[in-house]
């Protein structure tokens, strides 16, 4: 290994260490704070429903939902893709040991609320679950490495033709076409003509 290569390897390693620390410490801490902030906003919304009288503070659905949100806020730092896999692996045994009350299931409790309030509570529950999923995906290195590129690929397929049509209407399209597409097309034509 030449000195130049070794020094480049050293610089690269130092940069990678910095990126690793950034992702696994700083970025993760930021995501935990963001997740908690979003959960607090949901809890405030729930509280407003109680304050406006749409659901009683002592109603089981209110208590269960608030306790669930509190649990997510409290243990946000432990929420990880791996812990979810372990919970799912152990879910049967875990649910069997869950007592009927007061940790009863939320969906049943929601059925006892009047329809207008149920819709609002259902909306809060839906967003809560979306936030959990978002947190799991965006804090996992594996998910970043696998799901995000797949997601971008699907997104590009979904909006690809529309995005291309939009770009074609812009003035910059002429420059792009002249410097990238036309030379490529010309090369393809030249190769095609050889046959």
């Amino acid at each position: 290994m030449t000195t130049q290569v070794a020094l480049t390897a050293l610089w690269t390693s130092v940069s990678l260490m910095g990126l690793w620390i950034l992702f696994f410490w700083f970025y993760r801490d930021y995501r935990v704070d963001l997740f908690r902030q979003r959960m607090f906003a949901l809890r405030d919304e729930l509280f407003e429903l109680g304050r406006s009288g749409e659901i009683a503070f002592h109603h089981q659905a209110y208590g269960l939902l608030r306790t669930t949100i509190n649990g997510y806020i409290r243990f946000a730092h432990r929420l990880s893709f791996l812990s979810v896999i372990l919970v799912l692996r152990d879910s049967k045994a875990l649910m069997a040991t869950m007592p009927a009350a007061p940790l009863a299931r939320l969906p049943e409790a929601l059925q006892t609320v009047d329809p207008a309030a149920r819709a609002k509570l259902g909306n809060i529950v839906g967003r809560m679950h979306f936030m959990v999923l978002d947190q799991l995906i965006l804090t996992s290195a594996t998910m970043w490495a696998v799901l995000v590129p797949v997601g971008l690929l699907l997104l590009s397929r979904a909006i690809g033709t529309r995005a291309l049509a939009f770009v074609r209407r812009q003035r910059i399209w002429r420059v792009i076409r002249a410097h990238t597409i036309e030379p490529m097309d010309a090369m393809a034509r030249a190769v095609g003509a050889e046959a």
């Binding site: 908690r36 809890r43 109680g50 304050r51 503070f57 002592h58 208590g63 608030r66 509190n70 806020i73």
Partner: peptide, 10 residues
């Protein structure tokens, strides 16, 4: 408003 309010323990 809600004296039995529960906390997130943060």
């Amino acid at each position: 408003i809600d004296p039995k309010r529960t906390s997130s323990q943060l």
